[in-house]
Nucleic acid binder design. Structure first.
Lengths: 229, 229
DNA sequence: AGCGTAAGTTATACCTTCTAACTAACGAAA
DNA sequence: TTTCGTTAGTTAGAAGGTATAACTTACGCT
C-alpha cells in the first residue's frame, strides 16, 4: 500500500519538469552559439530525440521558452549578487565584481536580460518586470546596507519630480524603509555597470585592444556621487 | 550625340541605388516594429512589388542587408554627434544630449549598433569595427577639444598596461596627437552614456516609473573623473 | 542595330513555427 | 484489476522564411 510515496509531485510531474529542464539546457546551448535567432524549438526537439511538435506540450511557443530563459537568468543574476552581498568584504565592490563576473561568464544570458519586449503589448512583459525587480532589489539592499555604515554614499535627490517618482517606486515594491537616495544610487550604479558590461561583452573594448578591467576599479561611491550630481 | 550626359553613374547604376535605398527604408520600418527577427527580405520584396529572389540581386543575403543598416546607423550617429560638436555651446554637454537624442529617436537603430557579430569569425566584422570607429572618432575629437580649454578633464592613466593599450590604439588609427587620457576619457564617457541610453530605450527606467532625464544632467567632466579614478 | 549584362521571373530544397487530428500509454480510482 | 480520462507523443500540413538554379526579358552601351 502507499508506503513511502513522497507525497510531493507525482511521477508524471517530475518527468515533465525533467523534460522542461533538458529543453532549456539545450536552448541555452543554442543561444550561446548563434544568438536568439538560432534558437529553434524544432532543432531542440530533434536533439532530445522527439519530433517537432512534441515540445509544444511543454512550452506554449517559442516566445514562451525565451521568456522563461530570461526569467531564469534574472533569478540567477539576483542569486549571484545576493551571494556576493553575504560574503565578508562588505561594501559595493563585491557587488560590482559579481555583476561583471556573471555577465562575462554568460554573455548570451546577460544579453537576454535587455531584450526589450516587442513594441506594443506583450503578454510576458509583467512577468519580466517582476523578475527584473528581484535583481534590482538585491542592488538596492546592498546600497542601503552600505549606506548604514557610510551614509555619504546616499546622494541627495535634487530633482523634486525624480524624488517623487523614486518614492512611488519604493512604495509600490514594499521598500518603505528605503530612502529615495538609495533608489537613486542603485539606479546610477546599475547604469554604470550595465554600460561597462555591455560594451565589454559586445566586444567594443576588445576591438579597441583595451582590457576594461581597470575601469571596474573606480570607487563605486565616487561613481554614484558623480552620476547623481 | 552625348550632349549633357552627367558623366557620373549611368542610368542603370542610379536605378540600382534607388532600389537599394527603398529596400533599406522598408527594412528599417520592419525593424522598428518587430525587431531584427521581423526583418524579412521576402516581405520587403513583396512590399516593393517584386518577387522574393529579386532582392538577392541587390543584397547578397539577409545578413548583408543588416550589416549595411548597421553601418548606416554608425555613420548617422557619427554625423549627429559631429553636428552637435560644431554648434555654439561647446563642451561635453551637447555631445551627451546629441547622443541621447539620437538613440531615443531611433531606438531600433541604436540597438543595431550593439548586436555583437556572431561568435566565431564574421565576414562583416571588420567593416563594422571600421564604421564604429567613425563615431568613436567624433567623441575623441570632442574630448580633445574640450581638454584644450579645460585640461583637467583629461584623466591621468594610472594603469600602465591600459596606457600602453591606449597608445597602441591611438597609433593604429592616426590619432597620434591624441593624449592617452583623451582616449580613456572618451571611453568612459561612452560607457556612461551607453549605460543610461540602453536602460532608457529598453524601458528599464520606464518600468520603474522613472524619468531618466536628470541622470543625463550630471557634469560630464565629473563623471569622467569618477569613472577613471 | 545588335549584343552582352543585369534584373527580373518561376521552381525548388530546406528550414522554421505552429495547428489539427489521431494514437498510445500512463496512472488513479471503481 | 479493469476501466477510463488525461497526457504525451505521433504524422500531416499550412504558412512563411532563406537561398540557389535555371531561364527569360529587356536595358543601354558600343
Amino acid at each position: 500500500m502507499d508506503q513511502d510515496r513522497p507525497a510531493g509531485p507525482g511521477l508524471r510531474d517530475r518527468f515533465r519538469a525533467q523534460v522542461r529542464e533538458e529543453t532549456k539546457q539545450e536552448a541555452l546551448r543554442q543561444l550561446a552559439d548563434g544568438g536568439p535567432a538560432a534558437l529553434s524549438l524544432n532543432a531542440i526537439a530533434k536533439h532530445l530525440g522527439v519530433s517537432g511538435p512534441a515540445l509544444y506540450r511543454y512550452f506554449a511557443n517559442r516566445d514562451s521558452l525565451l521568456t522563461e530563459l530570461i526569467i531564469d537568468a534574472y533569478h540567477d543574476l539576483a542569486a549571484a549578487l545576493d551571494e556576493a552581498r553575504r560574503r565578508p568584504p562588505g561594501g559595493l565592490r563585491p557587488l560590482v565584481r559579481a555583476y561583471r563576473a556573471w555577465a562575462v561568464a554568460e554573455p548570451h544570458r546577460y544579453r537576454l536580460l535587455f531584450r526589450a519586449p516587442l513594441p506594443g503589448y506583450d503578454a510576458h512583459a509583467e512577468r519580466l518586470v517582476e523578475a527584473s525587480r528581484l535583481a534590482m532589489r538585491v542592488v538596492v539592499d546592498v546600497v542601503v546596507e552600505v549606506a548604514r555604515d557610510f551614509p555619504p554614499v546616499l546622494p541627495a535627490v535634487r530633482d523634486d519630480r525624480l524624488a517623487a517618482q523614486l518614492e512611488r517606486w519604493a512604495r509600490r515594491h514594499d521598500l518603505t524603509d528605503v530612502p529615495t537616495g538609495a533608489g537613486l544610487a542603485a539606479t546610477a550604479l546599475w547604469a554604470w555597470l550595465h554600460g561597462l558590461v555591455s560594451l565589454e561583452i559586445e566586444g567594443n573594448f576588445a576591438s579597441m585592444g583595451l582590457d576594461p578591467a581597470p575601469l571596474y576599479d573606480a570607487d563605486p561611491a565616487g561613481v554614484v556621487a558623480a552620476l547623481t550630481a
